[in-house]
Design a protein around this nucleic acid. Sequence first.
DNA 1: GGCCAGGCGCGAC
DNA 2: GTCGCGCATGGC
Length: 319
Amino acid sequence: MKKQDKAKMYRGVLDVADFELGHTLGSGQCFRWGRDVDGWWKGIAYGVAIHLKQDESGLQFCASSESVSTYAGEMDLSEFLRWYLRLDEYPRFRVSRDDKYLRQARDLMKGLRFVRQDPFECIISYVLSVQAHMTLTKRRINLIARTVGHPVDFDGKRYWAFPIPDRVATLDGQFFRKQRFGWRSERVADSAGFVAQQFGSGDATLAQWRAVNDALLERSGSGVGLKVAKCIDLFSLERLHSVPVDTWVRKFAESWYGVTGSDAKICKWGEDRWGKWAGYCNEYLFSYYRELHGGTLYDKVLSFNASDEPSAELPFDMV
DNA sequence: GGCCAGGCGCGAC
DNA sequence: GTCGCGCATGGC
């Protein structure tokens, strides 16, 4: 990186409607964002460090680059942010009058959008997320980025771009064991290696990424089972009808809808019930249920946004 | 200090 | 196909 680029900062304001930044970035869908003490959300996506703040004027942004490269093409910064945050897509749908939980959940979580995450980063993130807390998963992803990613210095802080598959594939199960990733170690290594084998640079089309995710689900030892694959589908592969079933979804399915059984059965129930918007319906209910019944402050969305505390784990180092 | 975290994989049926 | 159990680790 050239010296003069380091100091550059690209700013602007975006018009937004029916959008809530805190619900979107604080919902737990993405791992490389955090709200700092100054109230700004700070993160790194597609190799660009970005700061965001929503107020009466709209969505304020500043970032380390004026153009961003994605699997959907090269975009200028504001175009990228509209795409990344789905600012022009509105999840509007009818909810039947007798589904009171979904009505309440939707009203509370309205404004949440599914972020278009980088597919490879999303795959590794969700393999790591299995049976681990958000903050621990964030820490582990940041560790991978600091180890084999490249630094992005911005606003007096050092962010780390998530590395391409070839780079992550240089780390083996032993390395991750040493880093105390536990039994996820060999699975992260396997998935990274599998992806690297096909597109080492991480350069692939959406259709190719979908094929990779489908293959990882079939592949034993990848760490990608039904839940993880559905998360990857929903959060990075445009499959917005996906319903990932975790422990919280199982709980609300049983106590609010009387639905029990295997994860596969609950998944199919949700996808059939809610159809095209199933991903959003499930996410609303998931967030609402967890808000009511569990977790710490950082795991909640509404309480967290109502407080002025910073996130537990921020995606940068002070330099 | 025990319980459980936004599960997966394997072996028994 | 599905049920039950082991799997590392850390937070609360």
